[in-house]
């Protein structure tokens, strides 16, 4: 045991902070939970999803292809799919 480690025992720092190995394990578990569905045989469906959503909305409202944004936020036990579509300011006036 080095002198530094000896003092750390008294300060309790080693006990309070999670070890870097524990952090490594946690980070790996999170990233692999995200990556496995994408790398283990399943195709990336997001581009297709985006195209189909766009087509459905276009049936009702004329929109610019560049004004649709799809984002996925991934965490260990769930993912958040956020679709935001910018409509031209006249698009909803008739409907309302």
């Amino acid at each position: 045991m080095r002198l530094k480690d000896f003092f750390e025992l008294f300060r309790g720092t080693t006990a309070r902070q999670p070890s870097s190995a524990a952090r490594a394990k946690e980070r790996l578990q999170v990233i692999l939970a995200v990556e496995r569905p994408l790398t283990r045989g399943q195709p990336d469906f997001l581009p297709l999803l985006q195209r189909e959503i766009l087509e459905v909305i276009r049936k009702y409202v004329p929109i610019d292809e560049k004004k649709i944004k799809i984002e996925v936020e991934r965490e260990a036990d769930m993912s958040l799919l956020a679709v935001s579509i910018e409509l031209p300011h006249t698009a909803l006036s008739r409907a309302l």
Binding site: A21, A24, K25, Q29, L32
Partner: peptide
């Protein structure tokens, strides 16, 4: 380094 918690231990890698 494993003993000091600086390196992933065998059980961690096996679990993952």
């Amino acid at each position: 380094r494993v003993a000091k918690g600086e390196m992933l231990k065998l059980d961690d890698v096996v679990e993952i």
